[in-house]
């Protein structure tokens, strides 16, 4: 395990910014697309970083690759698919929508529906007509005594 960590660290060059000027494309539209795509791809050697903000060597290679594919005329989806084919689901920051991620993508909807149902049930239950009985004389007296006993008498 320790060795693996060493190995991973060795892939990190001297700290640099994530996106380097020499990687960037002259074409501003393509560059903008590249930045957007980069935020969708995970740096596989880092922990929860997209390749756009990672300074690992592999991330840099992937960024250059993304730009090369864009220059070659790929669409955004094709670029992502190209990298997805090599690194698998793990590389996608936005999990793909398929059978095994159905639960994840549906979770917000399911939770929202459950919440709505629960809220509705609670409100239904709470609007029942309560018995608004007045207090009897004995009860009034008891309340008055309670208030009297418990009122601070130091003033």
């Amino acid at each position: 395990m320790r060795h693996v960590i060493i190995a991973l660290f060795l892939l990190l060059p001297v700290m640099a910014f994530a996106v380097e000027p020499d990687e960037m494309l002259q074409d501003l539209v393509l560059e903008e697309r590249a930045r957007v795509i980069s935020k969708e791809l995970r740096c596989v050697v880092c922990q929860n970083q997209d390749i756009d903000s990672s300074n690992a060597g592999v991330a840099r290679d992937l960024r250059i690759l993304v730009r090369e594919r864009l220059v070659a005329g790929d669409s955004d989806e094709e670029v992502i698919a190209f990298i997805h084919a090599r690194y698998g689901d793990y590389v996608l920051m936005r999990p793909p929508f398929n059978a095994s991620t159905l639960a994840l993508w549906l979770a917000p909807f399911v939770l929202a529906v459950v919440s709505l149902l629960a809220g509705w049930a609670i409100i239904l239950r709470s609007r029942r007509k309560g018995v608004v009985a007045d207090f009897s004389e004995v009860e009034e007296a008891e309340i008055a005594r309670f208030i009297d006993i418990n009122t601070p008498k130091d003033n």
């Binding site: 190995a7 060597g57 592999v58 290679d61 992937l62 690759l65 090599r86 698998g88």
Partner: peptide, 15 residues
Amino acid sequence: LSGRAGIEWGLSGVP
């Protein structure tokens, strides 16, 4: 040298 073959192999680190 470029690390491109590494990407083709889905490399995440060395070795």
